[in-house]
C-alpha cells in the first residue's frame, strides 16, 4: 500500500513498487482469466473471475486512479459477483457443465479464433501504446485538488447529462426487474404472522414440535415411533416418507434358533 499514495499523486515513470506489483499480479490475473473458462464447476469459475476483477482494481490504483480502483472492487467484485455467486450457489454445488459437443469441431475453431483475436488485439495495442509515455496523469489528478474531486468536477459539469441519463436508464432497469420478478398476491392470499399463529393453535393441530423418533422406545431406529408418556405410540414422530415396517407373521415367528 505504501507506494500507492505517491503513485496516485504522481504517475510518471514506472517505479520499482509499481512494476513489482504489476509483474506479480498480471500473471495471476491472466491465469485466473484462463481458469474461469476452464473450470468445470460454476462456482469455481465465478471465483476465478473475482480474482481477475480484484487484480484489475489494483491495476487501476496503480495507474493513478485510486477512486475507480476502489469502486471496481466494491461494485464489481463486492456486489455484482456476489449476486452471481448467490444464484450459482442455489443451482446446486454438483451442477457442472456437460462436456458433450453439439457442434462438430466447435471447440477447436473457438480456440483458434480466440487466439487469433487475442493476437490481433495484443499486437495492435502494443504497436499503438508500446512506446507511449503517459502524459498529464499528474496534472489531471491535481487540477481540482485530487483524484476524487477531479472525477466529481467532470461528472457534475461536463458529463452531467450523460451521467443523469445513465442513472435514469439504470433505475428503469432496476424497477423493470423488480416488476418482472414481483408476484402480486391478493390480500386474502397473504398469510401473515397472526394467521399462522392462529392456525398453529387451532383445534386438531398440535402446536409443539413433533417428538423425535425413538423417544422412550425400545429402539433408537428412525423407523420406531416415539412412545408417549402414557405408553401409546406417537405416529407424528415418524417421517411420512419412511415406510412403516411391520413384521409379517412369518418374520415374527420363532425361527428355531432360541435355546430351548
Amino acid at each position: 500500500m505504501n507506494g500507492l499514495v505517491t503513485l496516485a499523486a504522481a504517475a510518471g515513470e514506472v517505479k520499482g513498487g509499481e512494476a513489482a506489483t504489476f509483474y506479480l499480479l498480471a500473471p495471476i490475473a491472466v491465469i485466473c482469466a484462463i481458469g474461469m473458462v476452464w473450470a468445470r464447476n460454476a462456482v469455481h469459475s465465478a471465483l476465478f473471475l473475482v480474482v481477475t476483477m480484484l487484480c484489475l482494481g489494483v491495476f487501476y490504483v496503480l495507474q493513478a486512479g485510486p477512486f475507480i480502483g476502489m469502486v471496481q472492487i466494491i461494485v464489481y467484485t463486492g456486489a455484482i459477483m456476489m449476486l452471481f455467486l448467490f444464484v450459482l450457489m442455489l443451482v446446486g454445488r454438483d451442477a457442472s457443465d456437460s462436456l458433450i459437443e453439439t457442434l462438430r469441431g466447435q471447440r477447436m475453431t473457438a480456440v483458434l479464433l480466440g487466439l487469433g483475436f487475442a493476437g490481433l488485439v495484443a499486437t495492435g495495442l502494443y504497436r499503438a501504446l508500446g512506446n507511449l509515455d503517459s502524459v498529464g496523469l499528474t496534472q489531471a489528478n491535481s487540477v481540482h485538488g485530487g483524484n476524487v474531486p477531479g472525477i466529481a468536477a467532470l461528472l457534475f459539469t461536463k458529463y452531467v447529462f450523460a451521467f443523469e441519463v445513465t442513472s435514469a436508464l439504470l433505475i428503469t432497469a432496476a424497477v423493470g426487474a423488480m416488476i418482472l420478478a414481483h408476484i402480486e398476491k391478493r390480500p386474502d392470499q397473504k398469510i401473515a404472522q397472526p394467521e399462522r399463529m392462529r392456525a398453529r393453535f387451532a383445534p386438531d393441530n398440535y402446536p409443539g414440535p413433533k417428538p423425535g423418533p425413538g423417544v422412550f422406545a425400545n429402539s433408537t431406529s428412525v423407523a420406531t415411533p416415539a412412545v408417549l408418556p402414557d405408553g401409546t405410540q406417537s405416529e407424528r414422530s415418524m417421517s411420512k416418507i419412511l415406510p412403516q415396517r411391520e413384521l409379517t407373521a412369518a418374520e415374527a415367528a420363532p425361527k428355531g434358533t432360541e435355546h430351548q
Binding site: 500500500m1 485510486p66 477512486f67 476502489m70 466494491i74 456486489a79 483524484n147
Partner: peptide, 15 residues
C-alpha cells in the same frame, strides 16, 4: 498508511 480513498478501502475490504 493513508490514501485519498481510505474509507472506500475499508468498505472494499468488508465487501
Amino acid at each position: 498508511t493513508d490514501v485519498p480513498v481510505a474509507v472506500l478501502l475499508v468498505l472494499a475490504c468488508s465487501s
